[in-house]
């Protein structure tokens, strides 16, 4: 009896299917059992991993914190010993989503940074009174965010690049005297490397989505450069921040 290749394959697949079905049947919990946990685990409709739930992705929120240095190498840098810090929040709207590959977003951020140093007295020595510089940067930007590594390859890393324009309000005081205030503006660039937290706790991530509509969470480190125009007070520079981000 000659069996061609197709017949062999058909028989093999039939045997596998039958075996799998009988194996599945063997795991079923008899009707009327009180072991509801077992029922839940075995029922393909109830089993958590079998359920696919994902709320719509519309926005991103990032909370940034990090050191901020101004006037690097400049003779007037009286704040050289002060690292800020810089605090800011960034909200983006998701304009385009290529599923499991990338996002294109646009949004803005608002931040706060304050520097302080001792003022200088008549003798040229430092006194107890402080001179301060407060920055309130506002940045409008567009972002491309690639999450294909995390979604397709299981590598929990996300890369993002951001381009925008910044307006930073600055205000400088010495003691109670308001010395000057104004705006510095210029282009803004940032690159971000993020660690996808969904990877470490997928169950928690899905619960967060079901309960709160938060699709993804991530930790990030971001390197940014604010290039102020030549007539602006040069409060920009290259700085880094770290923080926590949410997609919702």
């Amino acid at each position: 009896m000659r069996l061609n290749r197709i017949t062999v394959l058909a028989l093999a697949s039939f045997a596998l299917t039958t075996g799998a079905a009988s194996a599945l049947h063997a795991q079923e919990v008899p009707k009327g059992t009180a072991n509801t946990q077992a029922q839940t685990e075995l029922d393909p409709h109830l089993k958590p991993a079998a359920r696919k739930f994902e709320s719509p992705e519309r926005f991103m929120l990032e909370l940034h914190v990090g050191p901020y240095k101004v006037f690097r190498g400049e003779p007037w840098n009286v704040f050289s010993g002060d690292l800020g810090p810089s605090l800011s929040a960034n909200v983006d709207g998701i304009l385009y989503r290529l599923p499991r590959i990338l996002y294109v977003t646009a949004g803005g951020s608002f931040g706060w940074t304050r520097f302080a140093a001792n003022a200088v007295g008549n003798s040229g020595d430092q006194v107890d009174e402080e001179t301060t510089l407060t920055l309130l940067p506002i940045i409008a930007s567009a972002q491309v965010r690639v999450d294909a590594l995390a979604r397709l390859l299981g590598i929990p890393l996300i890369l993002a690049g951001r381009v925008g324009w910044g307006w930073s309000h600055w205000d400088t005081n010495t003691g109670l005297i308001n010395d000057a205030e104004g705006w510095s503006l210029g282009p803004y660039f940032a690159g971000q490397l993020a660690l996808d937290l969904d990877f470490f706790e997928p169950g928690g991530a899905r619960a967060l989505d079901e309960e709160w509509g938060i699709n993804h969470t991530y930790l990030f480190a971001e390197l940014s450069h604010f290039a102020t125009t030549s007539k602006s007070l040069p409060v920009g520079g290259t700085n880094w921040t770290a923080g926590l981000g949410f997609v919702f």
Partner: peptide, 10 residues
Amino acid sequence: EPTTGFWKRY
């Protein structure tokens, strides 16, 4: 005594 700060220095 009179003091000077960042802005004067700048």
